[in-house]
Design a protein around this nucleic acid. Structure first.
Length: 586
DNA sequence: GCCGTTTTCGGCCCGACTGTTTTCAGTCG
């Protein structure tokens, strides 16, 4: 409900922009943004509190509240329908093409009847776009390239695809002596799970030289633009990198500005205005006098705020918390003591347990848990009850060898779990007696994912009520860019998790990152404990952990919220207690 | 269309770059 309505409001905003109407577009955009981050469904709010409740939503006043009510009652909004009828274009597709905004889309529709990506491509190929007033050869070519990109990537890349490559580029740029300070910025620095393009910021001298070097980096296949202070390239991996170069005294203000989020910055600038200051990427100014800009810290301080990590800069309460000096102490990768979701492919060769354990110990973990799939997942060589016993013997053997080796003082422990399957009826595909013998049990949904919301929710609830099931893996089931989450009532999942002492996983695989940031924040609020797991299928994938930690940070997680940030002793005590006694364990 | 510790009117974040209409609108972040 909220998401659909948000989409409609964005479209209305867009139509208003087409017509050169000022300020209304921002109003609708703002309302859309509020709805997207709203926990409670608007029809619930309306039912309980009427129009007054709706008007309490930031950015919603009389006019938009009435539109929400119209949508709740009829499922559509008359004005939106009319606007759409007048200019029936596929907004999602067309705005996804770099360089196309409301004005150009309007002309393309009026002159060439372009409604969607397909029409646009045809028109560009027939060279009908270049002669249009306000367009030209280059615009036409850029449109064609934009279409290619949009089709290829659907516009966004995974954090896990981009971050390592950007670290490489930053390392290369550091070779230049002109580069004094460098950082990634934008949604990349905020560690969003998907990224549109990468931003890099440099403080230093001779920007021309830096920019020339940047646009000629190996792997740069296209230069979108290149000016005196900024440039933008496409890499052969298919994503864009924007670079900005500026003087050192502005590095902090620019980093703050280009890290965003946009909403966070708007809120910050309003605070500046209230204090009689002006904040831009060039610094914090009182009149024409610059009062801060060299570091982010001094800008936040001058505005009366504590500095905060980029991951929470989404205008979602962090500004108030910073003003009250009550920011959370976010969990850090160095807090992670172990990883409980690692596959050894037991059937394929038991030596992998040793390899995985060695790699985990090398990272500095105190423990690693082997949790192979179980028998229902035959395709993944799922283990049955007997094989689990076999595996247990092997793990015990390795543990005793560990205790003898390393001078007898090796603290490192291998734990045995499994990732069992939650069947359609909520039962587990391994007998309870066998589950009870393991150090811990993870259970997850791996089949029949298209159930109704109540069926899927009750399926997982039943699994959580099983006293042997400690952890639910990838609780919402989404795969980024491929598959939406299952239909579930997440509030109910949280309630039962809390009630039963079940832990929810933050799966760190860059394609999953499941729970997402919103889920995590909710879980934390309610007091449901979480665990960050890599879901590694070979030892290199243990490094996925950092993406899970980023996600946890975006959900405001602290060390205490995440059980594998606890030391081994406390961790083992926790698992020794019956599930029912774990709630409240800190 | 929203909003208000300057509150019911008059504001609404700010600047760079591109391409094209050669002085600036459109787009982006």
């Amino acid at each position: 409900m909220n998401q659909n309505l948000a989409k409609i409001f964005r479209e209305i905003a867009f139509y208003f922009e087409m017509q050169d109407i000022v300020f209304k577009p921002q109003a609708y955009e703002k309302a859309a943004l509020s709805l997207e981050t709203l926990r409670e469904s608007v029809d619930e709010i309306y039912k309980k509190q009427g129009i007054g409740g709706l008007k309490k939503i930031p950015g919603v006043g009389q006019g938009i509240a009435e539109k929400i009510i119209e949508y709740v009652k009829t499922g559509k909004i008359g004005e939106h329908q009319q606007l759409k009828k007048k200019t029936p274009v596929n907004m999602g597709e067309l705005t996804g093409v770099e360089g196309l905004g409301p004005k150009k889309i309007k002309i393309l529709y009026q002159k060439l009847k372009v409604r969607n990506l397909n029409d646009l491509e045809k028109a560009a190929k027939k060279r009908e776009i270049a002669p249009l007033f306000g367009f030209g050869e280059k615009t036409e070519q850029n449109i064609l390239q934009g279409i290619e990109f949009f089709k290829k990537s659907k516009g966004r890349f995974l954090l896990g695809e981009i971050l390592p490559r950007v670290y490489e580029i930053i390392a290369e740029l550091k070779n230049l002596k002109e580069v004094k300070q460098i950082s990634e910025a934008g949604s990349l620095r905020r560690r969003k799970e998907t990224i549109g393009d990468a931003d890099i910021l440099i403080a230093g001298s001779n920007p021309k030289k830096v920019i020339d070097y940047f646009v000629s980096l190996p792997g740069a296949v296209k230069i979108w633009n290149k000016g005196l202070t900024k440039a933008s390239i496409r890499l052969d991996e298919g994503f864009d990198v924007d670079l900005r170069v500026l003087p050192e005294k502005q590095f902090g203000s620019a980093l703050q500005y280009f890290t965003g989020s946009k909403e966070h910055n708007i809120a910050l600038r309003k605070i500046a205005v209230e204090k009689g200051l002006k904040l831009s990427e060039y610094g914090l100014f009182k009149g024409s006098k610059m009062t801060a800009g060299k570091t982010e810290e001094e800008i936040y301080e001058k505005l009366g705020l504590d500095w905060m990590p980029p991951e929470i800069r989404e205008n979602n309460g962090e500004i108030k918390a910073a003003q009250a000096h009550q920011l959370p102490r976010l969990i850090d990768i160095n807090n992670i003591k172990g990883d409980l979701h690692c596959h050894s492919h037991w059937e394929a060769g038991k030596r992998l347990i040793g390899e995985m354990a060695a790699a985990a110990a090398k990272i500095g973990y105190e423990y690693v848990g082997i949790s192979d799939h179980t028998k229902f997942l035959a395709i993944e060589h799922g283990l049955d009850e007997d094989q689990l016993i076999q595996q247990k013997k092997e793990i015990e053997r390795l543990n005793s060898r560990l205790r003898q080796g390393f001078g007898g003082q090796a603290k490192f422990r291998i734990l045995q779990g499994c990732e069992a399957n939650i069947m359609a009826d909520g039962s587990i595909d391994i007998k309870d007696e066998a589950l009870a013998k393991l150090d811990y049990v993870i259970a997850g949904v791996h089949s029949q994912m298209k159930m109704t919301e109540s069926e899927m929710t009750e399926r997982i609830v039943k699994a959580m009520r099983n006293p042997n099931v400690d952890i639910i893996s990838h609780p919402t089931g989404r795969i980024l860019k491929q598959r939406d989450e299952y239909k579930i009532n997440f509030d109910r999942i949280l309630k039962i998790a809390k009630e039963t002492g079940t832990i929810l996983e933050i799966n760190a695989n860059p394609y999953r990152l499941d729970l997402n940031d919103k889920n995590i924040r909710q879980a934390k609020k309610i007091g449901v404990k979480m665990i960050i797991n890599s879901d590694a299928h070979h030892k290199e994938q243990l490094n996925f952990m950092e993406y899970g930690v980023f996600q946890a940070r975006r959900g405001w997680c602290e060390k205490k919220d995440v059980i594998n940030a606890w030391p081994l002793k406390k961790f083992l005590e926790f698992f020794k207690k019956p599930k029912s006694e774990r709630t409240g364990f800190i």
